[in-house]
Design a protein around this nucleic acid. Structure first.
Lengths: 327, 327
DNA sequence: TAAACAAATGTAATCGATTTCAATATTAAT
DNA sequence: ATTAATATTGAAATCGATTACATTTGTTTA
């Protein structure tokens, strides 16, 4: 493989000149520049990013931590991150952590040992302590997730308000018996969305029945289905269900379909996230839309600014209630 | 940031010894080793991967090229790749190309300039010429896709046979009027699956109606929905539809649901890929299952062997017809 | 034409590790 | 106790680029 020495020799110049042709072409005369370019071309030379990065200590690589790429919620965010990153001359590395601390560590080490310049974390299960410690020395931002202590910058929505809007929508449609399919309360967003639910119910003086509050360990389709199974078994059934993610809602909808329960006539359903699938179900799903692309692009910008040493501030973005057939 | 020199100085040894403690601890005495480990710990030292890789010219990074992470088809494959890669001491970088040659080039350059050691390509739209050229100098394998000229190693299934099985299944159920929702014939798999369709139809002496062969430009939900719209408009409607991907099938199913056409009573439907969502539709989707995890893990193994300089051979894996409610 | 200055190029240090080879310390054998 | 053999350690070269500084070349100006 050709290196800069060979190019220099072939072109009859010094390595410094070759480097200049690569990085600062204006300062070298047209004549030598063409000579060098010729040599580069003939040797099929590609500068080694390793050598370059070692010297400049910049890899132009950003890590994006997410628990699982199979969760469609992340795809739009990633598009936003990627477009912005590329625009700024960075590439991104998608890191699936599977919520596994060992795997997280691999990626944390990549930034520690300079293979990457910063991290955008979207993993709600990531070890907060490790992340906070790391954030002291390295550029890190959080996207859609955040810590309550707030030492790490983030971009997110107002989960409580969004959940409040979803539930208020159901109440305004006349529902009084409303169930909540939530994820595990160890997640901040789960606690926040519960508070939104609670707020709406209290505001309209509706009772919250503990047996209608379901906290699922995971947020896969099956969990939503399982949750709905649990609800349907009860003597008194709710007339409306708010699921804190579309994936859960779609699982729940599946169970409703199986039991030939009409949606929204018998039971209305609201999801959260507005993933692509949510428009492919029958009926289509009413849901809360997060500005995912924007969240991604803002978080990428935040991180790049942090890398550049600029001061950055956390951002809360607007959400939107998307009313479709399921309510 | 601490480097190996500082550690050496602090421990009162040479940098060579520090390096040995890191990479070959057995050759250094317990006494000096503990001294060095102490220093490493105190300085919070992390060896720079850049320096190390430059010297060893190994980055232990693999690129995985895919058109779009939002396509659920890839998620299981990626899990297979990732598990195998990590087991072998490699990390993977997911590269979304958006079928954009410019973006492809960014990633090709990463292996050219040694940031990554090899590529697993799952992108059917990738520039074959570029990829073939690159494969001459760098380790590259294809997964689920392949070239007919066969210069690049691949792991895939027998698309023609799989499609044949799907269509034969419909025929055995008594269907004679069968439509095909295909993707663009520029893709090899599209041509192969068409041949399987053709073979089954000819074997059972059923006519192939050109107006029932739909080639969609993309393979998103909307394309499937659009295709079904086109089929329903025709004077004579098919009684069964084979879609070459679950995503297309789910879009088609959506349109059937909208028009209150019963599945499978009025129209039966078969998909392809067995994505997770195919079991969440109503009715659940009959589909062809590919051994996705295995495909991923085999392709990762192939690539790593190639990197190690071993000879590798292409592999064709078994598929399976999964009969569910839609037929 | 020579001096003064600017532009172009080259030399060599540098980034942070690994690794060969030489030097030294330790152990074993006589 | 001396030598031979072996185990540890260190000095310095190396990977492939960038870049400060030195040197050469070219251009202006008096």
């Amino acid at each position: 493989m050709a290196n800069i020495q060979k190019v220099a020799k072939k072109a009859g110049v010094s390595v410094a000149t070759v480097s200049r042709v690569l990085n600062n072409p204006d300062v070298v005369t047209l004549k030598t520049r063409t000579k060098v370019e010729q040599a580069i071309h003939e040797l099929n030379y590609e500068p080694s990013a390793l050598g370059r990065n070692l010297r400049t200590s910049r890899s132009r690589l950003l890590l994006v931590l997410l628990p699982s790429i199979s969760n469609p919620f992340y795809t739009e965010i990633i598009n936003g991150i990627e477009d912005t990153a590329i625009e700024e001359g960075y590439n991104i590395l998608l890191c699936e952590t599977d919520s596994n601390p060992e795997r997280e560590n691999i990626y944390f080490n990549m930034v520690k040992n300079r293979l990457a310049e910063g991290i955008i974390s979207m993993d709600p299960t990531v070890n907060k302590k490790t992340l906070t410690d790391l954030a002291k020395d390295y550029p890190i931002v959080q996207c859609s997730e955040y810590d309550e202590d707030g030492t790490i910058c983030y971009v997110s929505i107002d989960n409580e308000l969004a959940a409040y809007h979803a539930v208020r929508h159901l109440i305004k449609l006349g529902h009084e018996k409303i169930a909540l399919i939530n994820s595990d309360e160890k997640f901040l967003y789960a606690r926040e969305r519960y508070r939104g639910f609670q707020k709406a119910m209290e505001e309209f003086e509706l009772p919250i029945r503990p047996e209608w509050i379901l906290n699922m360990e995971n947020v896969k389709f099956e969990d939503g289905q399982q949750a709905m199974k649990g609800l349907l078994k009860q003597e008194v059934r709710p007339t409306a269900v708010f699921a804190v993610s579309d994936v859960l809602a779609i699982g729940a909808l599946k169970e409703l379909n199986i039991n030939q329960i009409r949606v929204p006539e018998d039971i209305a359903l609201v999801g959260f996230d507005k993933i692509v699938f949510s428009n492919m179900t029958h009926p289509t799903l009413t849901t809360i839309s997060q500005p995912m692309y924007k969240m991604g692009s803002i978080s990428a910008n935040m991180l790049i600014n942090k890398i550049k040493g600029k001061a950055v501030e956390s951002v809360i973005l607007e959400h939107e209630l998307v009313i479709r057939e399921s309510t």
